[in-house]
Simulated assay, not measured.
Amino acid sequence: MPEAKQTSGLKETLLSLFLLGVIVSIGMGIYFEQYRFYSALIEQMPRKIHEKQAAPKLTGTKDESIFSRLPLPEGVVFLSASEVFDASTLSDKINGKAELYLGAGFVCLETRRFCLKGGSDAWMEVFLYEMKDAQSAFAVYSLQKRSGAIPTDLGQRSYQTTNALFIVFGPYYMELVASAENTALQAALRTLGQALIAGFPVLGKPVAEPKLFPPEGLDPQSIMLIASDAFGFEKLNKVFTAGYRIDGMPLTAFVSRRSDPGEAHALAEAYRAFLLQFDAESLTVNVQPGEEIFAFSMMGQIEVVFSLGPYLAGVHQASDAKRALDLVKNLRDYLIKINET
């Protein structure tokens, strides 16, 4: 009897972890309406920077504030002094969100308010986050994406809303938020954003992993990066996800580039074993010789995983097996092309 209780307790613990992963990703089903997925953090990776000149560091002192050293566009003036927050004080400024930034490789935040020359009633506040690397910056950028986002051409990735502008460039993530919704402030946000970006001599290379997804049916704005414990599985990290719509049905694909084919294959086997612990039902998949694709039905959802060269990939929580396997085929064919180049 004691052994039976221990086994039952272990299953309950594992099931709780899996359900936590399900809860975290439940928002995927409405990504087209909200342009975002579940919250996700990323694995910190080395920054690839053009080392022509050292990037500015956020200090916040009167003489060395990053905003004081960058050019301001005509018609925009300082309204307040800079404030700087490190890991120990970040929650003082963004209480409730600090842990998300800290887990994604946060280094420093500097903020300052600006206004249009001749009037301080309508103002703009800039939040400039320095992250550990370009992928960290991309993670918090995609994580914070608002509904109604309209893509812009600033930085490496950016979008705007009715009163704000959000930009990622190199290891920096910047939010520019206006105190009111009007045309003058919206234009000032853009010119201020352009001026601040121009003041940074060093930029990281754009995150390349989103190019791992086939373009047919893809929502480019939905791409996210999960640092660890993807889908409730502690061994699954560095996972990019992307939203698709196939025959009107939303689907989520995922890809993770591993160190070598052996690691990718072992991780696929480990994820398969993880799902089977929860009594997932194995589904028959028609495959070509040499292919190995695992498909499961669990809690009314379809899960598919496979490895191809250094890639681990699949479809997560689909509601239709046929469409899930169709997307897997497209994803696999696309990764074959990438792997051959």
Rank of each mutant, 00 (worst) to 15 (best):
E3K: 10
S8E: 13
G9P: 03
L10R: 04
L15R: 05
F18W: 14
I23R: 14
V24S: 14
I26H: 09
G27V: 00
G27H: 00
M28G: 15
G29C: 10
Y35C: 09
M45K: 15
P46K: 05
K48D: 15
K48Q: 12
H50W: 05
H50R: 08
A54K: 02
T61H: 02
T61I: 00
D63R: 07
S65L: 02
R69S: 10
L72E: 01
G75E: 01
V76H: 04
F78I: 04
F78L: 03
A87K: 15
L90V: 06
S91L: 06
A98C: 07
L102A: 06
V107H: 03
E110S: 10
E110A: 09
R113G: 00
F114N: 07
C115K: 03
C115W: 03
L116F: 06
L116E: 07
D121N: 11
D121W: 02
W123H: 06
E125H: 02
V126C: 05
V126M: 04
Y129K: 01
D133C: 13
A139L: 04
Y141L: 09
L143K: 04
Q144G: 14
Q144K: 10
Q144M: 11
G148E: 08
G148H: 02
G155K: 01
Q156C: 11
R157V: 11
Q160W: 01
Q160Y: 02
N163D: 15
N163C: 11
P171H: 08
Y172H: 08
Y172K: 06
Y173W: 13
E181W: 00
N182R: 03
A184G: 03
L189E: 07
R190Y: 03
T191K: 04
L192G: 05
Q194Y: 00
L196Q: 07
I197T: 03
G199D: 03
V207H: 02
E209N: 07
P210A: 01
L212N: 11
P214Q: 01
G217V: 12
D219R: 07
M224C: 13
M224D: 11
I226H: 14
A230K: 06
A230G: 06
F231N: 06
G232N: 03
E234C: 10
L236K: 05
K238G: 15
V239E: 06
T241N: 08
A242E: 06
Y244I: 14
Y244L: 12
G248R: 05
P250T: 13
R257W: 00
R258E: 15
R258Q: 15
A264V: 10
A270K: 05
R272K: 14
F274V: 04
F274S: 11
L276T: 11
Q277L: 14
F278T: 05
E281Y: 03
V287T: 15
P289G: 11
P289R: 10
E292N: 14
F294M: 12
F294E: 10
F296V: 14
Q301D: 08
I302P: 09
V304E: 06
F306Q: 12
L308C: 03
G309W: 00
G314M: 00
H316K: 05
Q317G: 02
D320R: 02
D320F: 01
K322P: 01
R323N: 02
A324N: 03
K329V: 13
N330K: 10
R332Q: 11
I336V: 13
K337F: 01
I338H: 08
E340S: 15
T341V: 14
